[in-house]
Design a binder for these strands. Structure first.
Ligand SMILES: [Mn+2]
Ligand SMILES: [Mn+2]
Ligand SMILES: [Mn+2]
Ligand SMILES: [Mn+2]
Lengths: 217, 217
DNA sequence: CTAAATTTTTAGACAAGACTAAAAATTAAT
DNA sequence: ATTAATTTTTAGTCTTGTCTAAAAATTTAG
């Protein structure tokens, strides 16, 4: 149906979109490690296929068709990540690269069977929601740790940055999804936190606190 | 390492090679549904990469490096086929197309873990051997059914043609790998056989008998 | 052994996707 | 409101892999 390149652009636009009206050419180029001129070419192609609206010099936004397509790719990506962790003993910092390849395999039956085989998981190994066949997914109430105050308690349920280095940092601190966390102290000067994790106290920088999603008790 | 296109050419040459010294341009083009001119271009590229020897106007043969590469692709293809049948309830006539895509996924860990997950199978769903990481595989003693004489008995252990239509024919006749078969009669006129399968007698044409591998008792 | 048929290669073109350099449009700064 | 800086697009090139048509080599037939 769509080339791997087209799928990667669709995914990039989807992830950059957020609340924004239009995603700029440069933002897309930055995320995809390509040049702006390549993006312009592709945006025209996606617009021709009715996958994106393209406003020259302003940027692009996915159409409903494009959003559905993005959700199907993300569904595949996240289901494969669960598969790799649950069935093949991959760690959560190893799955992304392989899922980047597997997400482009074309077979409706394959992905539906993987879903069933895994027991219809709702979250991937990084806490991100898995869309269903129609692009719908559960929205969970969650708060970024850096919004919490002394005394707040909760559970780690997701990450903003899921880069390999961050995942390895979390492993080193024995923090994983489901880990209970309590805010012991907050330092105004550098915006760092002291938190209690697994019964021990831990200092985390602002950067760390900005990338952890907590579900409050 | 190698592009998907290169991998597909390598696989085609490998399968056409057999005992032959050289595989011709046209044979490759025929198997891959491309034109001879495209094959010529690719053979030069494979020769440059030391994956094949190319003798202009004569044909090509894989180098040791090319053979190893072919075996690794075939290993992946067949392991994925086993996975689809054993873990995801695919039937043996549905797996090939999906495996054609999955065989190009690049991840040593992925394929080794799949292998382990499946219990290191030695045969794929069509009875074909699965090479190990080094390209070695078990050779089984087997006879084409059309070589058998009245009274011979054995077990169906492999297929020459594994096309969807042939697999569906076998399903219809309740024949699968491991099915016991006995030669009841042979008709000289049209070279057809009467065989006993699952306690019942069945007429099979020469074409059928030419595509079944039997292990004699 | 020569002529015809077949196979293979070459030459030139095209599509997808990427890049560089230059031009045009937009945005920011005086 | 101009000018300067930034962003985006256009124009032209490259690579990979494909194709058609024509030329060259090989094989088959008479
Ligand atoms: Mn991922
Ligand atoms: Mn993920
Ligand atoms: Mn197959
Ligand atoms: Mn097979």
């Amino acid at each position: 149906m769509h080339s791997i390149s087209e799928e990667n652009y669709i995914k990039a636009i989807y992830h950059l979109q957020g609340g924004k009206a239009l995603v700029s050419t440069n933002e897309i180029a930055g995320r995809m490690n390509t040049k702006a001129s390549s993006v312009t070419d592709m945006l025209k192609k996606l617009a021709d296929k009715n996958l994106a609206e393209y406003v020259p010099y302003k940027g692009a936004r996915l159409t409903d068709k494009g959003v559905l397509c993005a959700n199907q790719i993300i569904r595949k990506h996240r289901l494969w990540e669960v598969f790799l962790v649950e069935k093949l003993d991959f760690s959560w910092d190893e799955v992304h690269e392989v899922a980047e390849q597997l997400e482009h395999i074309q077979s409706q039956k394959l992905i539906d069977q993987i879903d069933k085989h895994l027991g219809f998981p709702k979250k991937d190994p990084h806490g991100d929601p898995i869309p269903d066949r129609h692009g719908n997914y559960e929205k969970t109430n969650k708060t970024v740790l850096s919004k919490l105050k002394k005394g707040d308690k909760g559970t780690l349920i997701g990450l903003i940055d899921s880069s390999k280095n961050f995942l390895k940092y979390l492993d080193k601190q024995h923090m994983k999804l489901g880990t209970h966390i309590e805010i012991v102290d907050f330092e105004e000067f550098d915006l760092s936190y002291t938190i209690k994790v697994n019964g021990a106290e831990l200092q985390i920088s602002k950067l760390i606190s900005d990338n952890l999603y907590i579900k409050l008790n």
